[in-house]
C-alpha cells in the first residue's frame, strides 16, 4: 500500500513538473490572469457590499461571515482552473480522436491519469487569495479557534473539493457516450456560481435544489460554517457521506462507462 502511494506521488511530481514547464511558455498569461483575478475580486466584493448597504443583510449572514463564503468560492475557482479544467476538458478530445486507447494501456489507474496529468499554475493566485479572504473573515467575526474546529474545517474543505471533483468527473465521463458533451460543463459552471453566496440567501425551493440535487451547499456554505465554528454534527456527517458517495459513484461510473468505449475508427 505504501509502495503504491509512493508510486502515485512520484507520478504526480513528474506530471506536474512537465506541465509546469509547458505552461511557463505562456508567461503573458500570468499577467492577464492576475488582472482577471483582481478585477473579479473587486467586482465580487462590490456586489456583495450592495446587499449590505443601509443595514440590510444577506440570508442572515453578517458581512464577515459572507466573506468566508466568498473566499472559499474563490479558492474553489482556483482549484477548478488549476486541476479540473485542464484535465477533464481533454477527455472529450481523447474519446473523439481515439487516443484514450493509449491512456488505458498505461500501467496506472486511468481515472488517476485523466484527472491529474496536467496542472496549470494560473489558478494558484486564486487559491491563495481565497484562503486569505476566508481567514480574514473568520478573524473579524472574532470567534475562538480550537484544534477541533480547525481539524473539522480542514476535513470539510477537503470534502468539498472531493465533491466538486466528483461532479466534474461524472459529467466528463458521459463524453464516452455523447462526444459533444463539453457544454454540459459550461452549464455546471454557470450553476456553481451560485456558491458565491451563502445558501440561506436563496428562496426555499432553490435552497432545497442546491442542497439535495446539485450539492452546492456542501461546496462553500457548509465549510464556511465549519470555519465559523457553528456547524452542527449532522451536517458534518452528511457532508462526509455526500462526498464519499459521489467519489465512489465517479469511480464506479467511469469503470461502467469504459465498457461502452469502442475506440475511434476501429
Amino acid at each position: 500500500m505504501i509502495k503504491l502511494i509512493k508510486k502515485y506521488t512520484n507520478f504526480l511530481v513528474l506530471f506536474w513538473s512537465t506541465s509546469l514547464s509547458i505552461e511557463l511558455e505562456y508567461r503573458l498569461n500570468l499577467i492577464v490572469d492576475i488582472f482577471t483575478l483582481v478585477g473579479n475580486l473587486f467586482g465580487s466584493l462590490l456586489v456583495l457590499s450592495l446587499f449590505y448597504t443601509n443595514h440590510h443583510t444577506l440570508g442572515g449572514w453578517s458581512w464577515s461571515a459572507a466573506l468566508v463564503v466568498l473566499g472559499l468560492f474563490t479558492t474553489l475557482e482556483g482549484f477548478t482552473s488549476s486541476i479540473l479544467q485542464p484535465n477533464l476538458s481533454k477527455i472529450v478530445r481523447y474519446v473523439q480522436l481515439g487516443t484514450l486507447d493509449y491512456v488505458l494501456l498505461k500501467p496506472i489507474s486511468s481515472q488517476y491519469w485523466l484527472s491529474f496529468r496536467y496542472f496549470s499554475p494560473w489558478g494558484i493566485p486564486s487559491i491563495i487569495v481565497g484562503f486569505l479572504i476566508s481567514i480574514y473573515g473568520v478573524i473579524s467575526t472574532s470567534n475562538q479557534f480550537n484544534t477541533i474546529s480547525i481539524i473539522c474545517s480542514i476535513i470539510m474543505i477537503i470534502s468539498s473539493l472531493i465533491t466538486l471533483y466528483s461532479i466534474w468527473f461524472i459529467l466528463a465521463t458521459t463524453s464516452i457516450w455523447f462526444v459533444k458533451v463539453w457544454n454540459v460543463n459550461e452549464v455546471l459552471k454557470s450553476i456553481l456560481i451560485a456558491g458565491r453566496f451563502p445558501i440561506s440567501s436563496y428562496p426555499n425551493i432553490v435552497r432545497t435544489i442546491f442542497t439535495f440535487i446539485i450539492p452546492i451547499a456542501f461546496l462553500t456554505t457548509i465549510p464556511a460554517e465549519a470555519l465559523l465554528g457553528r456547524l452542527d454534527v449532522y451536517w458534518f456527517l452528511f457532508s462526509l457521506i455526500i462526498s464519499a458517495t459521489l467519489l465512489f459513484t465517479s469511480i464506479r461510473f467511469w469503470l461502467y462507462a469504459l465498457n461502452f468505449y469502442t475506440s475511434a475508427s476501429s
Binding site: T57, L58, V184, V187, K189, S190, I193, A194, S201, Y202
Partner: peptide
C-alpha cells in the same frame, strides 16, 4: 445547452428578491 448556461441573471434574481432589499 448554451441557452441553459445563461442562467446567471436568474440566480441573481433569486438572491435579490430574497434579500431584505
Amino acid at each position: 445547452l448554451w441557452a441553459i448556461s445563461g442562467l446567471l441573471p436568474l440566480i441573481m434574481l433569486g438572491i435579490w428578491t430574497q434579500s431584505s432589499f
